[in-house]
Nucleic acid binder design. Structure first.
Length: 516
RNA sequence: GGCCUAAUGGAGAAGCGGCUUAACUCAGUGCCCUCUCAAGGCACCAUUCACGGGUUCGAAUCCCGUUUAGGUCACCA
């Protein structure tokens, strides 16, 4: 089983099709291969084939055969279309002999003129029937013009009738009917390379492709492909046309996620931001198969490769891309990692995209792991992080020099407390709150310290008698938290202090106290 | 405009003629837990399936029309 069709650009949209091709091949014990479709010499981007391969590999999508960058593997090569020119030409030669194809000398201007005329008469546009002028040229004339050096292309001579319907079948859409193709489509361009339609028929026949998985935009071309296979005397493959991923456009309508305008359409966007690739694959899987979500919850977000993909569980509508859900999967996945895995992932990311973060991690990898390990590796781990892209900002307060820098501008206490109160709390905590005890005792002691200074030991007591206290224990914790972390939320204070250690905590307390 | 396809909550969706006064997940909201946040627990969030007709004892589910949305109409893939 050989899914085909990869654009030589590496975007999320093709990640989606690649992922499904790969999955289907795996599930059915087929072969997943990549063929480089580089017949559009005008739009070709150098090196995009290698880039695609590299990115797919990050998502654990590795082709079994076909184009592999610096090599090609398999019995049906070459797998780069520009290297298959002689194959296409051989087939075309036979078509020419059989009278099923002919050279066309019409210039772009003439074609435009035909188009205008058709538009005026409200006829279907295109090169067909009486408008297909070059169809009616005699062989002598063709020979003469070719010998003369007139530029030409080769068109396929359609025997179809627009008013007839052909039954087509699609693995995700089921069976439906489309008008027969009556256009004499171009099969060989003036640069000597075939168009997609023709290359698709040839390649997928000669490469023994059994399933073609591609984007929905190809549905409309199905009559052409059906016709081509039939006239060539070949058995057509099965088709699966995948829905396109959408987003809400500027006008409020759904529109295709565009690789030109939407950063989230590019895989590199997620890579640069440090999302785990598994999260994106999981998210894409929920779009691909509606029952995947339930399955992955049952399987605790593990072993997703065991999920059985099925075309008929696929929605025909293009889903709106949902960043929130990507974040959800991401947190879930990162929450499950051990501190060692987190270290590896963070380093890998930072090495490529974030030198500041890399430097921070490499100061002391154990320290970094300690930070990342707060309330991790337990039944319900913290799910603080969805990506590595903002990690530097999130953990910088753990590093003394960075703390110093930030403390100059980010020390914002609750204004309802006077400097003296804050000072009193911090001094007492500094002097009396030992870190040499378990979390519960530590917490009880913090309450006790608060109480001696007039703070309620819990929120309830404070709510019941607000006038009896100057604040509640949460205010005390907030003062400590802001002093040590410079923010109003942070992971569990006890663990933060354990990591910073007594000496550094005291230093931060003193530094703040001296400022008042 | 022609052709093809689709239409269930803010998003992804289940549903395939009675078991549905519409599952599940994300997001949101409220409460609980609680030193903050995250996590976790518990609730709430579509009386209704784009609209209008029909078929049927019975329709989100079948049929027809309308509307809306997407795809497509290249010497691009």
């Amino acid at each position: 089983m050989n899914p085909n069709t990869f654009k030589n650009y590496s975007y999320a949209i093709t990640l989606f099709t690649s992922m499904i091709c790969h999955k289907v091949a795996r599930d059915t014990k087929g072969v997943f291969y990549i063929r480089l479709e580089d017949t559009d010499t005008k739009r070709e981007i150098q090196g995009s084939g290698e880039e695609l391969l590299k990115q797919l590999q990050l998502f654990n999508i590795v082709p079994d055969e076909g184009y592999l960058g610096d090599s090609q593997k398999g019995n049906y090569g070459p797998y780069i279309q520009s290297q298959r020119a002689s194959i296409y030409k051989t087939v075309i030669k036979q078509l020419l002999i059989d009278g099923k194809a002919y050279p066309c000398f019409c210039s772009p201007e003439e074609l435009a003129q035909i188009h205008d005329e058709q538009e005026k008469k409200k006829l279907n546009p295109g090169y067909y029937g009486e408008f297909a002028k070059c169809r009616f040229l005699s062989n002598e004339e063709r020979k003469e013009r070719i010998l003369r050096g007139d530029p030409y292309i080769i068109r396929f001579k359609s025997n179809g009738d627009h008013t007839n319907k052909v039954a087509v079948s699609d693995l995700v859409r089921g069976d439906f009917e489309i008008a027969e193709n009556d256009l004499d489509i171009v099969i060989l361009k003036s640069d000597g390379l075939p168009t997609y339609h023709f290359a698709h028929a040839c390649d997928d026949h000669f490469m023994r492709t059994t399933i073609v998985i591609r984007g929905e935009e190809w549905v409309a071309s199905l009559p052409i492909h059906v016709q081509l296979f039939k006239e060539l005397g070949w058995k057509a493959p099965k088709y699966a046309h995948l829905p396109v991923i959408m987003k809400i456009g500027e006008n409020g309508n759904k529109r295709k996620l565009s690789k030109r305008h939407d950063p989230e359409a590019a895989v590199s966007y997620f890579l640069q931001d440090g999302y785990p690739t598994e999260a994106l694959v999981m998210y894409l899987m929920t779009i691909a198969n509606s029952n995947f979500e339930e399955w992955i919850f049952e399987h605790k977000f593990e072993h997703m490769e065991e999920f059985k993909f099925s075309f008929d569980k696929m929605s025909l509508e293009g889903a709106l891309f949902d960043m929130g859900k990507v974040n959800f999967f991401s947190k879930e996945i990162l929450g499950k990692k051990t501190k060692y895995e987190i270290l590896d992932m963070a380093k890998k990311y930072a090495r490529e995209f974030n030198p500041n973060l890399l430097a921070l991690i490499e100061r002391d990898e154990n320290y970094f792991m300690e930070i990342m390990n707060i309330e991790r590796e337990k039944e319900n781990p913290r799910k603080d992080y969805e990506k590595f892209g903002n990690l530097y900002e999130l953990i910088s307060f753990f590093y003394n020099d960075l703390y110093e820098e930030l403390a100059r501008t980010q020390l914002n206490y609750n204004e309802k407390f006077s400097n003296d109160t804050i000072k009193a709390v911090l001094s007492k905590v500094r002097d009396e709150l030992s870190l040499e005890q378990d979390e519960q005792s530590w917490f009880n002691n913090m309450k006790a310290i608060g109480e001696t200074l007039g703070f309620a030991p819990n929120g309830k007591a404070f709510k019941q008698n607000p006038n009896q206290y100057i604040g509640s224990i949460s205010d005390v914790a907030e003062m400590i938290r802001i002093t040590l972390t410079l923010r109003k939320n942070s992971p569990n204070l006890y663990y933060v202090m354990q990591i910073l250690k007594k000496e550094e905590c005291d230093r931060r307390f003193n530094s703040v106290i001296s400022k008042f």
